[in-house]
Design a protein around this nucleic acid. Sequence first.
DNA 1: ACCATCTGTATTGGCGCCAATTTTTCACAT
DNA 2: ATGTGAAAAATTGGCGCCAATACAGATGGT
Lengths: 221, 221
Amino acid sequence: MSESGTGEKTVRGQSAKAQAGRHDALADALASEIHSGALAPGEWLKQIDVEQRYSAKRMDVRRALDRLVQKRLVVHLPNRGYHVVRPDGRLAQEIRDVRVILETGAVDGILARVRGEDVAEARRLALRFESLLLDGSAIDLHDANIAFHGYLLGLCGNPELSALVRELRGRIASALAGQWQKRSRIEQSSREHLAMVDALAAGDAEALRRLIRAHILQRPE
Amino acid sequence: MSESGTGEKTVRGQSAKAQAGRHDALADALASEIHSGALAPGEWLKQIDVEQRYSAKRMDVRRALDRLVQKRLVVHLPNRGYHVVRPDGRLAQEIRDVRVILETGAVDGILARVRGEDVAEARRLALRFESLLLDGSAIDLHDANIAFHGYLLGLCGNPELSALVRELRGRIASALAGQWQKRSRIEQSSREHLAMVDALAAGDAEALRRLIRAHILQRPE
DNA sequence: ACCATCTGTATTGGCGCCAATTTTTCACAT
DNA sequence: ATGTGAAAAATTGGCGCCAATACAGATGGT
């Protein structure tokens, strides 16, 4: 097929990073709205509406929706349209279980690589989350939470694992959508964050695993 | 956005399964060719070539390529085209590590649910792989291997986990592409399959985890 | 002989229109 | 009133054309 050898014949020194197009931006925007609940579960995403709302071209709308289908955030029914995926308790539980496996599985790698300054940074992020308990919006808390967990996972030295967990987290955000309502739960989360930092500093793998499991499953051990 | 309430207003009793369109079939075909090596790493996938080779429409080609980009099987460079992803040793190792975490993490679930008939079926699949050592093509072996591992993972009762591992496996198939060349390695794989079945029958979690780790990393413990 | 620039060609990517399908509306019979 | 069926409106999805861009070859200058 197209004998240009094995490609790369005329490669210039450009960075191999594929830049995000307009459709990517639109997909991200829609994903954001779905996660935040602005687009309710089950709501139909008519192409014309999306096109006008984001002043995007029809083609970008289609691509973005197609991308969200692959991310399992929206469902596509041929000749009927796209709609936001509905929460599925069973699915959400399965994904949480996968996250427990992945994130507890990353603990050994984390502890093997963690340095003092990493612990300090993790604690800083945990404290930032705590400080936002008072005067932070739900979005702020969400972001701070993502930042903390992302940083912690990043310490394991496996970018693929981090990316995978990030994707999984995004996949169930809409399914839960109400977990951040209760203040007591958020405070509990913050305490767990700090406990995780302590376990991290102490190098206590077993404790860290226990904390992560409880944190993800949101149940006391 | 489009006040059709929360959707589902006029849902008929149809199954909610989204059927695969032409683009999906094309994407699968291309993925197959990439995995089998028919499409070499780095090779450019010109839209016209794909269009003619599979007698597909231009639009389906674009969608399929876009899908493969998301599956990380091809790389897209704007205004230049799509080409098969090149093997990346570091990435492949990261993905193998993730697989180890996931598949060893599934062991407890597997042992908790496995029944006698499941063990028998797993052994049957392992033996089928072994029998293909003599008179099976590389494709046959590949399929039998997938079938065995897929069945084993399916026993953990978490479809999401199974799907995730299947996707991860597909993501590095091209990066290795040569691991099935050495006959000795295939025979070793078959022995490991049978050892895994034995550990499964014995309910020996630790042994099963050790075998899975060695099997994925392709190194003796 | 070698390098830079320019022209021609091939390929990608965007855009608009129209057919196919579905949903809604409305008229009509029961 | 209620259910049935057909016409109308709205929406999705496909296809072809054309501009924008990159690639290859030719041309000319040093």
